[in-house]
Amino acid sequence: MRALACLPARGTRALACLLVVLGLAACGAQDPPPPAVPHGYVEGAQETAEPQARLVLADDATGEVHLLDLATGQVGPLGSVSGPVAVTGDGRFAFVSSPTGTHVFDSGGWTVDHGDHVHYYRAAPRHLGQIPGTAVAAAGDATLTALSLSGGTTVMLDRSRLAQGAVAGQPADGPADGMVVPYAEHLVVPVAGRVEVRGRDGAVVTRLGEPCDGPAGQAVTRRGAVIGCEDGALLVTASGAGFTATKIRYRPGSDAPRATAFSHRPGGDALTALAGEQGVWLLDTGARSWKLLRTPPPIAVNTAGAGSPVLVLDSSGVLHGYDPGTGRRVARTALLSEPRPGATIQLDAARAYVNDPAARAVHEIDYADRLRTARTFRLGFTPAHMVETGR
């Protein structure tokens, strides 16, 4: 840059040069613009290349709650709950129920699914606090979690506020018969034998035409939101044209008890449910069909999705794998020596996890390799209740 030719100068020329120099100095003193916020940035969290799968485990005898990191195998304490009776989760937060209320734990691992790509995050796990009521089920999306309580009410929790440690739920707006399900930035709500779609402010957007008497059980899949009904299930889907409902009815002639609670892998398109002592239900939301699999009396069931084996833990502690197409058993392994109430099957895209309270252990199962036990985590406590997070 050439130096300014200001000197020698007098009068107005000197004044003009001085203003130019001061102006240049002022421009040079300005702070540079702040860097753009990277896509996927979450304050207080670290983005990772792999899912941060964890298990939240509650000991019903001592009340201690622990976190098992499935990547490292490390176990650490999360807190304590007086008399835990159940645990449920929304993918990040675990809700441990007790007679005096529901305790909320941040597992510190979660996934944000944008449809065409996903983000994985980790943060410090912690005990956030307690809310009144006993939670029996949770359903959530990236911004909102609906927590169903044993009295039939639903509490709505803002996930961003939960992440900041603020545990304050608000009752769902408007009447509801059963679980309120966050889906497609709206709320799917069964009420008076029908299902409504409401905005996040509680205002009714549309009333779906298909009836749904006796709603019980809910899930969100890639195909849409599912509400269990007396005669089958209602699949609610969103598109540019709005919301539509499809009834998937049970096959005629079935005498098995209906599905009242669903289990599935998050993001999967197949749901499972217990069918009393007769077996288990398999609901394929892609094929829009139910199938009853005849099994020994089951205590837990789950599946990774359409085409994956249906995993059934029976009352004698044997884990079975069933072909979802033929309904035939393709594998079995004696897993639990003393099965107890609360045993569950949690699974992700590659592994299944079964808690074994009597052995004070959790078994990791490779369900694609004839139910091979890949790892057994030996614990210093009783994992009576379990939920997987980070998915």
Results as ranks from 00 to 15, higher is better:
A3E: 14
A9Y: 01
R13N: 12
V21G: 02
A25S: 11
A26L: 14
G28A: 15
A29K: 06
D31S: 15
P34W: 11
P34V: 05
A36E: 14
G40Q: 03
G40M: 05
Y41Q: 12
Q46Y: 10
E47P: 13
T48V: 15
E50C: 12
P51M: 11
A53G: 05
L55T: 07
L55K: 02
L55P: 05
H66T: 04
L78D: 03
S80V: 12
V81W: 10
G83F: 09
G83T: 13
P84K: 02
A94C: 08
G108T: 06
W110F: 15
D113N: 13
D113A: 06
D116V: 14
H117T: 09
V118Y: 05
V118P: 05
Y121F: 15
Y121H: 03
R122H: 06
A123L: 12
H127E: 15
L128S: 02
Q130E: 12
Q130C: 10
I131Q: 13
L149K: 04
G151Y: 00
G151A: 13
V155M: 15
L162A: 04
Q164Y: 11
G174C: 00
P175K: 04
M179H: 07
H186Y: 01
L187T: 01
A192N: 07
G193K: 03
V197C: 01
R198M: 07
G202E: 10
L208A: 00
L208V: 00
C212Y: 03
R223Y: 07
G228K: 03
E230C: 11
L235V: 04
F243S: 04
Y250H: 07
G253V: 06
G253Y: 01
A256F: 07
T260R: 11
F262V: 05
F262A: 03
R265W: 03
L271C: 03
T272P: 05
L274F: 10
Q278K: 13
G279L: 04
L282V: 10
S289Y: 00
L292C: 02
T295I: 00
P296K: 04
V301A: 08
N302M: 09
A306G: 04
G307A: 10
P309S: 09
S316G: 11
G317Q: 06
Y322P: 03
G325R: 13
G325D: 15
G325K: 13
G327H: 00
T333G: 06
A334T: 11
A334S: 14
L335S: 07
T344W: 06
I345S: 01
A349E: 15
D356E: 10
D356C: 05
A358N: 08
R360N: 14
E364V: 08
D366C: 04
R375D: 04
L379K: 01
A384K: 02
A384D: 15
V387Q: 09
E388G: 11
R391T: 12
